[in-house]
Design a protein around this nucleic acid. Structure first.
Length: 805
RNA sequence: GCGAGGGUGUCGGAACUGGCAGACGAGCUGGACUUAGGAUCCAGUGCCCAUAAGGCGUAGGGGUUCAAAUCCCCUCCCUCGCACCA
């Protein structure tokens, strides 16, 4: 009778060994079964090891993966490592250990940690982006992009740390200074490899309609792409044959354009230097603007600044009047044409600028008071002071004006995107070498496909040189090579790829991870793609998603993948915070180590808690107490084996409960409402304990439903009680909809909106039958005495509502 | 500023399509068992009043409805994303 205690370490080790030995979760090569591809973002193997955020996503999709297998799908649930990256390089520099060794050590640790949590990954398909067998194909994809004109070199300003003397990614610049040394960061123009993601902007936007991403993820993608419709308009520059081209979304307000503003870097400023009479002032302003980081230009600049280009005037093509031209850093060179027509009456930025510098404000859309603030409403406004546009609504005026501009030849309809091309170069060591060679005669020449991968050479020093070139530039025997085209001496590109590269296609490699001849075979890709469900952190829902969709669309266009979109469905989980409600980090000292938890309460309790902790998409603080509550739950489940009574089916008193539970848990898993699924199982477990008994059939069902969340303990109990072959080989249970409702239901009785009684009636009771039960209640009738019943509402299975006067 | 999502006990959070607000867990209070309890079990736990009956309660105010946490309007607050994007 007295069962042995629940020893989590023993049980978890035992089942993990069995799963491994049996290859229980390997995706099958048999393609006759329907497939299901569940994907989580692969981790960056940092030196800190796994943190409690990883298991939240992993457990959620592990539940889905385990359930799908039981539903008869051939499931691919893979794992790998996003192993190139800066933290490893920095660690290597500091400790004088090769990044490859650091990476290997970290991966080994991650692997052990992940295995200790019992995830049902197909471990035979592990990928590692820093493995030459993997990055060979990252380089290959880059060459394809290059071949198709989507990779090009450009001079662009990068964040330059004056103290470390290296280029920094935007995310490495914190508050305008270098994240690592606190040194000053300035913008420095460098030649960088770029990828033309902008060419795919429209399709990246349109195809969002074809996928099931959480709405807020779609919104983020749309915002980032930032499509806006409008027109480009040319303004003649008086006394020259030059034109200033602007982009505007409000061509209807052209009559109200009273001045123009150029970005300080605009080329016209230099071209027309001779005409500008206040050149010194202009130069001073440009220098000041250049010194400002993007951060200062945007976040801090509340007050508008600028200087006029004296001697230079433009002509408003609508009014024919001369208007002044200014430069100001509120106009960005990187958006639109780097120049705007300023309509202070109807744009709040222009209005602020005009007020500050006393420029004329003309009302061209009626509806507000342009002396007080810019009137920007486009729905109610009517055009005034605008010649042939007078009396039109804003949308009509926009159309009319664009047509007019096109007829005049001074403007065209135009769409602009905020999305910029992707800066693809990094001046670092620990990344994929860009497989190109520069030859004096032939220019940039791709390394032939059969020579891939271009291996990272071993170096002594991983520090970039004074000019900010990659550490690879310091290795002459690697840099110096011959031109693949003409055989003349040539030099290798020394930039490496960003972290985003390897993660932009890893889900393809999982489909065919050991293929030496191809990135992945079309046969495998046709079967497995697209990813059916992809879950990851909210922090990756813009860039990573956009980049990988871009690569995927490109590969689709050139015939290497079978689908235009990589992910059918994408969800995101909330962050797990420290017990103090702050983000978990070593410096805050609030890090929870999963290893300790696995040791103390076990992987199953950990997994249950990660799911029970709260709504899946919300950020939530960790609670050691809450974790204990989940351990107690599993112990109560463990002790149910002492309450077992005969009966392979459900007892009458629990029949409805079990069907309801099966339905609720099944649906809640799908809707990612893991917390309520766990709560429902806790509730039923409590009821078994209250009843002091549980039939074998009821216990079996509970274990089955709980298995995806707590796979070890449920398999162990299943075996102890003797339910046959292990749960992971069973089919997912079904429920009978008819049996999810009791024959007799309790409904509330309201009198004037207040609940006065609860009566039990048959679930199909007619209103008359229900009324009979209701009127038998003294608690109800006493509220009816001396009153007139005005109305009675009866909603079967819900409520009986009486209105009296 | 724009976009999205929120505001429910002491805390994390439940509540289908408008139908008994507070499931489940934590915490707390009391009791049992105990050498002990940071173990386990039992009971209680929104607020007011309290013997009961009753009343009040989902950020605040108004509305629709037999019925509102849920729908509509206004106000306040919080989180996330984007942010001088023309």
């Amino acid at each position: 009778m007295a069962t042995r205690d629940y020893n989590h370490s023993e049980v978890e080790k035992k089942w993990q060994d069995i799963w491994e030995k049996e290859g229980a979760f390997k995706a099958s090569p048999d393609k006759s079964k329907p497939k299901y591809y569940a994907l989580i973002e692969f981790p960056y193997p940092s030196g800190e090891g796994l943190h409690v955020g990883h298991p939240r996503s992993n457990t959620a999709l592990d539940i889905i993966a385990r359930k799908r297998r039981m539903e008869g799908y051939n499931v691919l649930y893979p794992i790998g490592y996003d192993a190139f990256g800066l933290p490893t390089e920095n660690y290597a520099i500091k400790n004088k250990i090769h990044p490859r060794i650091v990476t290997e050590t970290n991966i080994a640790r991650f692997r052990n940690q992940l295995k200790s949590l019992g995830f049902s990954f197909d471990w035979s398909r592990e990928v590692n982006t820093s493995d030459p067998y993997y990055y060979k194909w990252t380089q290959w994809i880059f060459l394809k992009l290059y071949e198709h004109g989507l990779a090009y070199k450009a001079e662009i300003p990068i964040n330059w740390c004056t103290s470390c003397k290296i280029g920094l990614a935007n995310e490495e610049v914190v508050g305008g200074v270098c994240e690592r040394c606190g040194g000053e960061v300035v913008r420095k123009v460098k030649s960088q490899w770029m990828l033309k993601i902008t060419e795919y902007a429209q399709r990246l936007l349109d195809d969002l309609d074809k996928v099931e991403y959480l709405e807020k993820i779609k919104t983020q993608q749309r915002n980032w792409i930032g499509r806006s419709e409008g027109a480009e308009v040319d303004f003649a520059v008086s006394g020259t044959d030059k034109k200033i081209r602007v982009f505007t979304t409000r061509p209807d307000t052209l009559f109200g354009a009273t001045y123009m503003v150029l970005a300080p870097e605009h080329h016209l400023v230099d071209e027309e230097r001779g005409r500008i009479t206040n050149w010194d002032e202009v130069v001073a302003y440009r220098e000041m603007a250049a010194r400002k980081s993007d951060f200062e230009r945007t976040e801090l600049a509340k007050e508008k600044t600028g200087v006029p280009l004296r001697g230079l005037n433009a002509i408003n093509p609508a009014t024919g009047k001369e208007i002044p031209v200014w430069i100001s850093d509120y106009v960005l060179m990187s958006y639109g044409t780097g120049a705007i027509m300023a309509v202070p009456g109807h744009d709040s930025r222009d209005w602020e600028f005009a007020k500050k510098f006393n420029l004329p404000i003309v009302e061209v859309v009626k509806g507000g008071d342009v002396e007080k603030e810019a009137f920007v409403d486009t729905e109610s406004g009517i055009l005034v002071n605008s010649g042939f546009l007078n009396g039109l609504s804003v949308p009509d005026a926009i159309e009319t004006m664009i047509n007019w501009l096109e007829k005049q030849g001074t403007g065209t309809r135009k769409v602009h995107y905020k999305l910029r091309d992707w800066v693809f170069s990094r001046q670092h060591y620990w990344g994929e070498p860009i497989p190109l060679v520069y030859c004096e005669k032939c220019g940039w020449v791709p390394v032939p496909e059969e020579e891939l991968p271009v291996l990272l050479p071993d170096v002594e020093e991983y520090v970039p040189n004074e000019e900010g070139e990659s550490p690879l530039a310091n290795i002459p025997e690697w840099v110096n090579t011959t031109c693949p085209k003409c055989g003349a001496p040539a030099k290798r590109e020394t930039d490496t790829m960003p972290n985003w590269a390897g993660s932009s296609w890893y889900f393809l490699r999982y489909c065919d991870p050991h293929n030496d001849n191809e990135m992945a075979s079309m046969e495998e890709l046709r079967y497995w793609m697209p990813v059916d469900w992809y879950n990851g952190g909210m922090e990756h829902t813009t860039l990573h998603l956009l980049y990988s969709r871009f690569w995927h669309k490109f590969l689709y266009d050139i015939g290497y993948v079978p689908t235009p979109e990589p992910y059918k469905k994408r969800t995101s989980h909330g962050m797990i915070l420290g017990e103090n409600g702050e983000k978990m980090s070593k410096s805050r000292g609030n890090v929870i180590n999963p290893d300790d938890i696995v040791r103390e309460v076990g992987a199953d309790s950990f997994r249950v808690y990660e799911m029970f902790i709260g709504a899946f998409d919300q950020a939530i603080p960790w609670s050691q107490q809450g974790l204990k509550g989940c351990r107690r739950f599993l112990e109560r489940v463990w002790r149910l084996q002492d309450l077992l009574v005969r009966g392979e089916g459900f007892s009458p008193e629990f029949e409805v409960t079990m069907h309801k539970l099966t339905k609720k848990v099944s649906l809640d898993y799908e809707r990612m409402k893991f917390n309520t699924a766990v709560a429902a199982m806790m509730e039923v477990t409590n009821r078994f304990h209250e009843a002091g008994k549980v039939t074998r059939g009821e216990f079996k069902r509970l274990l089955h439903l709980l298995n995806p969340v707590a796979p070890h303990i449920t398999e162990e109990l299943w075996e102890i009680v003797g339910f046959g072959k292990p749960i992971y080989k069973q089919s997912w249970p079904t429920w009978d909809e008819e049996k999810t409702v009791e024959d007799t239901v309790e409904i509330a009785v309201q009198v004037n909106g207040k609940v006065r009684a609860v009566v039990a009636v048959s679930r199909e009771a007619s209103q008359d039958e229900a009324r009979e039960a209701v009127m038998a209640e003294e608690a109800v009738t006493k509220h009816l005495e001396g009153k007139t019943v005005v109305k009675e509402v009866y909603i079967p299975q819900k409520i009986y509502s009486i209105v009296v006067k």
